[in-house]
Design a protein around this nucleic acid. Structure first.
Length: 461
RNA sequence: GGCCGAGUGGCAGAGUGGUCAUGCAGCGGAUUGCAAAUCCGUGGACAUCGGUUCGAUUCCGGUCUCGGCCUCCA
């Protein structure tokens, strides 16, 4: 049984989808005006794991992750660059897809874009006006009337009164209440805009997610996810919009992942302390980054640092070293590793605990491999299968270990083999100084040798 | 200021009312020509002050510290 922490109730709950065997999940994706940073990578990897695992549990999953391709930041950035906004967004959408693929993130089933859903957005706004939850301001903007929605603040644990205290009032504001938020923004000159019953304009940020999720998944669906910074106001506003428009409960389980941090501070665009996925992938392998993200439970902070990435590198080397040389086999039966792995995953996706189980599996493989090759192979198959549920450990072990972690490739595989052969000859002649000199030479080139009864193997380390 | 969340061994990071996390690093041993890899063993922790309890790192309360949201942000 899967247990999920539901932000709506602030408690772990047994997961029961609305329709047996079907899970409908919506995750807030990126606003595409720049490259993905590690925070975006975390969202993608975390919910990739959720989707993969639910599928492994046998659910028929519909996973929707949207793209916000029109908003103020996009317009500003496009103006700065002197290019049409859709040229800008297409470029960053392509970059995001590359980053996601590199990190082993499977594509969502649907990836709707705001600009493709203007009719749905407009009709939801019309319904909100009809139902008394929204009003047209004098300047053609349409606002959500926050006070018309009794439950406003439930998800984020805020009361309208508390919010009011900190609310910012813009001079000349056309809103009835400072907390009201825009559903439709009337177009300023030279801005991208669409026709609407309220004149030309564009959607507010929050309405697109309500309109697209409802269209794709129905009035009520199972899981809605995103970064913790979206809890308020974005997700709070989505609830107000969707429930205001449909009259039905919006989402059953709300999941928010914690932030990536640097030096105990949130990594964010505004603080300027972010690393893009690309920058990190120049120095670390994709699987190392993915592993690093999973070393922390998804709701906890994830502290970024070279030390942590180096640790991920070492961990994967240990995993693949255990897998190296094991023949293909059927996964072992009758061990409790699988059961413990699943117990960890089903406890709100406790990936650190699940990884701990995999390490114990590694130790067991290493322990038995010398006198129970078949047993080791079966355990290795189990390790691969379980790792696969996390999107890890799917490479050929030998290839992985020889592929190295960014070491220079001054020496080709053939050169290395030649040196190993020369060293072997020296060893047979008991010429230890010659043998060690060759080993040192390789070590300087980033090649680590490992002698065993079966011969000498090497890896880039 | 309001509302959340967190403080675990050298580092990272789970978890639990009373025996073990796990990985890296350290130490001892096995193995090795020497290494590497691997295995075995091992030291070291639960911010702080009270309370509940036979017993608390784990539950409750105070204090301190840190982070987040309250404005765009994954």
């Amino acid at each position: 049984m899967l247990t999920l922490y539901n932000d709506l109730t602030r408690a772990k709950e047994a997961f029961e989808p609305l329709h047996a065997n079907q899970v409908r999940m919506y995750v807030c994706g990126m606003t595409v005006y720049d490259l993905c940073h590690l925070g975006h990578a975390r969202v993608m990897v975390v919910f990739d794991i959720v989707a993969r695992y639910l599928r492994a549990m046998g659910y028929d999953v519909t996973y929707v992750r949207n793209i916000t391709d029109i908003d103020d930041k996009i317009i500003n950035r496009a103006n700065e660059r002197g290019e049409p906004f859709h040229v800008l967004t297409e470029r960053f959408i392509a970059a995001m897809h590359e980053d996601a693929a590199a990190l082993g993130v499977l594509p969502p089933d649907l990836e709707p874009r705001a600009t493709d859903h203007l009719p749905e957005i407009i009709s939801m706004i019309e319904r909100l006006i009809e139902r008394g939850h929204a009003y047209v301001a004098g300047n053609g903007d349409v606002y959500y009337d926050v006070r018309s929605f009794a439950d406003y603040g439930r998800l984020s644990g805020k009361s309208i009164e508390d919010l009011q205290a900190g609310a910012r009032v813009e001079p000349g504001d056309v809103k009835r209440d400072p907390l009201d938020f825009a559903l439709w923004k009337s177009a300023k000159p030279d801005e991208p805009s669409w026709e609407s019953p309220w004149g030309r304009g564009r959607p507010g940020w929050h309405i697109e997610c309500s309109a697209m999720s409802t269209q794709a998944l129905g009035d009520t669906f199972d899981i809605h996810g995103g970064g913790a910074d979206l809890t308020f106001p974005h997700h709070e506003n989505e609830i107000a919009q969707s429930e205001g428009a449909t009259g039905h409960p919006f989402v059953r389980y709300w999941m928010h992942n914690g932030f990536v941090r640097i030096n105990d501070e949130k990594m964010s665009k505004s603080l300027g302390n972010f690393f893009t996925v690309r920058e990190i992938l120049e120095r670390y392998r994709p699987e190392e980054v993915r592993y690093f993200i999973l070393t922390s439970q998804y709701r906890s902070p994830l502290n970024y640092g070279d030390e942590q990435l180096d640790n991920a590198r070492g961990a994967l080397t240990r995993f693949y070293t255990a897998l190296r040389g094991l023949p293909t086999a059927e996964p072992a039966s009758g061990t409790n590793f699988e059961q413990r792995f699943h117990a960890a995953m089903q406890d709100d996706f406790n990936t650190p605990e699940a990884l701990a189980v995999l390490f114990e599996l590694v130790r067991e493989i290493n322990r038995v491999r010398s006198d129970d090759a078949a047993g080791a192979a079966a355990l290795g198959a189990t390790l691969r299968t379980l790792g696969g549920l996390l999107g890890l450990l799917q490479d050929d072990a030998e290839d992985y270990l020889r592929g190295g972690g960014g070491a220079d490739d001054a020496l080709g595989d053939d050169d290395i083999q030649q040196l190993i052969d020369r060293r072997l000859a020296a060893k047979q002649a008991r010429n230890w100084s010659e043998a060690d000199a060759i080993r040192d030479q390789l070590k300087d080139a980033g090649i680590v040798l490992e002698d065993s009864a079966a011969g000498t193997t090497w890896r880039r380390g």
